[in-house]
């Protein structure tokens, strides 16, 4: 599952990183700046403000498609564990890495669900 997002080489800024103590409450949605196209299971993303584009592999594409503004990080993790033969810890690690990258690039927004 690693390398879900290609064409990005950067370190995640910790202030934008997903708070791993709140995975049940953090909801993810595409930012208004992002355009996406699913191409037979792989996804091409375009950041409109920069013109940069990115590619998600099949696992990354499943993650992206569940970032609808409805699902929490925990929901998406559960979906990954259902769909792929992967250890839950590994799935969570890879999910957090990709989400942090997408947030950092301005393609994904996170918000905290009210309880």
């Amino acid at each position: 599952m690693s390398d879900s997002l290609e064409r990005t080489l950067f370190m995640t800024d910790s202030k934008d990183a997903v708070d791993c103590t709140m995975l049940d409450r953090i909801i993810l949605r595409p930012s208004d700046d992002a355009q996406s196209a699913n191409m037979e299971g792989e996804t091409v993303l375009l950041a409109l403000s920069t013109g940069r584009y990115y590619t998600l592999n099949r696992v990354g594409s499943v993650i992206w498609e569940h970032c609808t503004g409805q699902n929490t990080v925990r929901d998406i993790h559960a979906k990954l564990c259902e769909d792929f033969e992967v250890a839950p810890e590994q799935a969570l690690d890879d999910l957090i890495v990709l989400v942090n990258q997408l947030v950092q690039e301005g393609l994904l927004q996170q918000e905290v669900k009210k309880v």
Binding site: A37, M39, E40, V44, L46, S49, G51, Y53, T55
Partner: peptide, 17 residues
Amino acid sequence: LSKRRALELLLPQALLV
């Protein structure tokens, strides 16, 4: 080529943001 690769190759030949 895969559809994904095709779009990757088309974008720089067309899209100026």
